[in-house]
Structures are given as structure tokens and as C-alpha cells.
Design a protein around this nucleic acid. Structure first.
Lengths: 115, 115
DNA sequence: GAGAAGTGCAACACTGAGGTTGCACGTCCA
DNA sequence: TGGACGTGCAACCTCAGTGTTGCACTTCTC
């Protein structure tokens, strides 16, 4: 049981192209690490490491099925992250709008970026 | 100019703790790189590099004001990313649910959503 | 004009992420 | 029972990201 990943950790897990390749494959069908390695242009060991990271972030589930381990992409954690990011984005923009309307006083002529 | 950053690129930009420190500060008030360096435990040059990355990702805006450059956190790109992630997460879970119900009653079709 | 403050650029060091190869060990099946 | 297939572990390599320092240049202010 891993501690809930922090926001930067979640984003870091999603900040790699190969990891997205893995995820999109797993979003289409459940696959084992070896099966993924057959499809993607990296070694199985590389895949395994990525799956570890994704599993740590709660983005995939693993299920042992005989001699192989089948992974599936898990959307719920992604939705939770999305919700969090949306909240933060809204807060930033709200503050920015407040600052702008606050700076509507005519005695500050700051648009001076033209030489 | 900055082509629209890809999804992994956006996530990679957000996958760093120091960058989040910068962003949260800029979400509270607009600041220059030097001002940020005074507040955060890293050098100005490190801050500048992070601001470059964030700017490239469209997460901050820069406005020259005299001899200094004032940055502000921009929420809109974050909201766009959130929306995208939410869509993908929903697609994954829908497919997973479909697979599960398919395993029980092999009667249903798959949702054909692209991720 | 002098000095303080901010930015720009370049060289450099260090660490960790991403990837590879090789081999050992379990599991399925003909 | 042996071979094919999948996973587990470890050593190793490479390079980009994060961070530093130093110096030059611009801009504001007194």
C-alpha cells in the first residue's frame, strides 16, 4: 500500500512519452509486460520499470493470471488528478482577474513594453 | 514559437516540486525571478530555467515592467489539461467496465473511444 | 554619473531517470 | 520431462534535467 502520491509525483509519472504509450495501450486492452514489450520499441525491463512507476501512482492495476501478470489502465486516479488541477487553475485565474480589476486605476500607465 | 505542448510535455512541466513551489507563489501574487529567488531556497538561475519551462508550457505569463520581468500563473492551460485528463480517464474506465461486463454476459459491444 | 538591482549568457558539476543486457527462477503444456 | 514463455533481479551505461557560480549588460534611482 503506497502513500497517496503528491501532485508533482502524479504529474511526473505522466510526464514521459513511453509511459503514455504504455498507458494508451492498456487503455485499449489489458496486457502483460512481455506483450507490451513485443508491441512497443523498448525492452521488457524498461516496460516493467514504467509499470512500476504507473502502479505506484495508482494509474494501473496488476492482476496475476497464471504465469503472467496482466495490467490495466485505471482512470479513477486520473480523474482525481484532473479535478485537482481544475480546482487550482480556477483559483489562479480568479486571483489574476481580481488583480487586473484592482489595477484598473487610471494613474498607472504600465503597458510600456513598446521601447 | 511554442507549438502547443503535448500531453506528456505538459505533465513533465508539472512534474517537479520546485516548479510547483514557483507556481503556487505565482498563483498568489505576480513576482519577478529575483523576487522568487529571494523567497525560495534555490538560485535565481534555477528559477529562471523553471520559468522558461513553465512559460513554454503556457503555465505562466511574462510581462516586462521596466528593468524587471513579472510573472503570473496562468490557470487556463491547467484547466485545459485537466479537461483532457478527465476525458481520457473516463474512456479508460468505460472500457474497463465494458470488459468486465463482457466477461460475465458476452452480449455487449465495446465503446470505441480514441485516447 | 555612481551604485544598486534585475536580467542574460555560459560553463560546469551532480544526480537520477530511462534504457539495455544477462541470467536465474517459476509456470504452462505437448 | 523438457522446452517455451513469462517474470524477477542485478549490473551497467548514457544523457538530460536540476542546480551552481561567475561575469557582462541594462535599467532605475539618488
Amino acid at each position: 500500500m503506497t502513500a497517496t502520491p503528491t501532485l508533482p509525483e502524479m504529474c511526473a509519472a505522466l510526464g514521459d512519452q513511453t509511459r503514455w504509450d504504455v498507458l494508451t495501450r492498456l487503455g485499449q486492452e489489458t496486457m502483460s509486460a512481455s506483450a507490451l514489450a513485443r508491441v512497443l520499441p523498448v525492452s521488457r525491463q524498461a516496460i516493467v520499470k514504467h509499470l512500476d512507476v504507473l502502479s505506484e501512482a495508482g494509474l494501473v492495476t496488476a492482476e496475476r493470471r497464471g504465469r503472467e501478470i496482466v495490467y490495466a489502465a485505471l482512470g479513477s486516479r486520473l480523474n482525481a488528478l484532473a479535478h485537482e488541477l481544475d480546482r487550482i487553475g480556477n483559483a489562479w485565474d480568479a486571483r489574476l482577474r481580481a488583480l487586473k480589476s484592482l489595477a484598473e486605476s487610471p494613474d498607472e500607465g504600465l503597458p510600456d513594453d513598446r521601447t
